[in-house]
Design a binder for these strands. Structure first.
Length: 431
RNA sequence: GCGAGCGUAGCCAAGUGGUUAAGGCAGAGGUUUGUGGUACCUCCAUCCCGCGGGUUCGAUCCCCGUCGUUCGCCCCA
């Protein structure tokens, strides 16, 4: 037997887990809309060029992690590895910049990277993110960070660290890059192999290596902060002040750089200790050059993305899954009764009760056993006698009390029954 | 792409180079053919221990490969 299973690095979200996803999505919607961010949905695949230009061809994501394919028209398409590039493409394509000085947008959806799966990392994974396009105001930086924190707190996560840094503008970074290479070149042969490779390709990335020997060498490395222009330095300080004013704790991390080329000035990560090796639950920063790079007008922007799988892992550590509540379990036996039971179940649902219909046709005893296991508040019972006179037995499972009511009485009794359901949930069961 | 561990029923899980591969949960049926939660009984891997190949008289157990998975590296959310 060769059963077809999910592809490597993808997985099914089964009902037991999905409640966490729905909870996060609901909270995100609420938090974002309160901050006047609007949802945007863009395609899951885009032209490959978009990501190459947007994220930088030398980045790992672009150079080795993209799901790229030719379609039947021989176009090179790529499953989006992140959300920002597509969102900015849409912003430019639809001239959203013409509609106002700032666009606040959010998105959620699947992203794809060809990587080796491990804890908190899938090939198809999901991100939720926000972007504020059109403002260079440091308050925009602080706002998006504050919203990230609001979201994570609303989900119930604590013990998170905000790592914060400025990597300046292009000029600052070019200068710093030279200084960095000048500093590291004498140690070239002592660096770990990856870092040696990066020395020519992307020296800033050496800073956040986990290799201990390389980190030792980096003890006295020149700081990016000494290479920020006065205006970059000022921005950096302003954002810090705003965060402090908001009561948001942060840790300035001069070695925090990010993997994508488009970042400028503010970069940050929010990390958790409870995730194994993949500590980052939310990351982002400012990207003042990206809109122009993708053919739009010079437009400053700032945003972040958060990995839903990682948020779900943390949530599952905090709250046990909750079973859905059930108002009614509809029990029936006999041809006429069974037919009426379906109608009764539909009536209950139209009256906005939850109701499960037992379809087994097994003995009443079995059906009650199931009702009990499902945690129903009450049963409606139909047998031959009830079918005959169009009644139904209403039985409360906690107390065992039972009375006959007419099937047509259900609508007029709905409010009373609803109150009793509330009450019965609060009561311990009677033996 | 690299390294290490793991792969026995729907789930958890014991086990052995050789007759019927423990146990638990879940599930089905029954004791209780119109009334539930406990208890008890029965059933639930008999081309079979991920798949393919090898060693062996004989492999679920040893070896190789492969796929999957877990954790880590790289990188990232």
């Amino acid at each position: 037997m060769s059963l077809i299973q999910v592809s490597r690095g993808t997985r099914d979200l089964l009902p037991e887990e999905i409640q966490y996803w729905q909870q996060i999505e609901a909270i995100a919607r609420e938090v974002f809309s309160r901050a006047t961010y609007q949802e945007i949905r863009t395609p899951i695949f885009e032209q490959t060029d978009l990501f190459e230009r947007g994220m930088g061809e030398a980045t790992d994501v672009v150079s080795k992690e993209m799901y790229t394919f030719q379609d039947r028209g021989d176009r090179s398409l790529t499953l989006r590895p992140e959300g920002t590039a597509g969102l900015v493409r849409s912003y430019v394509q639809h001239n959203l910049y013409a509609q106002g000085e700032i666009q606040r947008l959010w998105y959620v959806g699947p992203m794809f990277r060809y990587e080796r799966p491990q804890a908190g990392r899938q090939r198809q994974f999901h991100q939720v993110g926000i972007e504020a396009l059109g403002s260079a105001d440091p308050r925009a930086d602080a706002e998006v960070i504050a919203i990230a924190k609001d979201l994570l707190n609303a989900i119930g996560l604590e013990n998170l660290r905000l790592e914060f840094n400025s990597i300046g503008d292009r000029q600052d970074r070019l200068q710093y890059r030279e200084a960095l290479v000048a500093f590291l070149t004498p140690y070239q042969n002592d660096l770990d192999p990856d870092s040696q490779e990066r020395l020519t390709r992307n020296p800033l990335r050496i800073l956040d290596t986990k290799d201990e020997k390389t980190q030792d060498i980096l003890q006295n490395v020149p700081s990016i902060h000494d290479h920020l222009s006065p205006s970059s330095q000022k921005r950096f300080e302003q954002v810090q002040q705003l965060l402090t004013d908001l009561g948001i704790d942060y840790n300035i991390n001069a070695k925090l750089v990010r993997g994508l080329d488009y970042y400028t000035h503010t970069v940050f990560e929010i990390q958790s200790d409870d995730l194994g090796a993949q500590a980052t639950v939310c990351a982002g920063g400012r990207y003042d050059g990206l809109v122009k790079e993708l053919g739009g007008p010079e437009t400053p922007a700032v945003g972040w993305a958060s990995g839903l799988e990682r948020l779900v892992i943390l949530m599952q550590q905090l709250q046990p899954p909750t079973a859905p509540t059930l108002d009614f379990y509809v029990v029936s036996r006999g041809d006429r009764a069974e037919a009426q039971a379906l109608k009764v179940a539909q009536t209950l649902r139209q009256l906005r009760f939850s109701a499960e219909l037992d379809l087994s046709g097994s003995a009443f005893g079995k059906q009650f056993k199931r009702a009990d296991r499902k945690g129903a508040a009450a049963c409606l019972v139909l047998g031959d006698a009830e079918a005959e006179n169009l009644t139904v037995q209403l039985k409360w499972l906690a107390s065992g009390e039972q009375r006959a009511i007419g099937q047509s009485e259900l609508p007029s009794l709905a409010d009373e029954i609803r109150q009793q359901i509330e009450a019965s949930r609060a009561l311990p069961r009677v033996d």
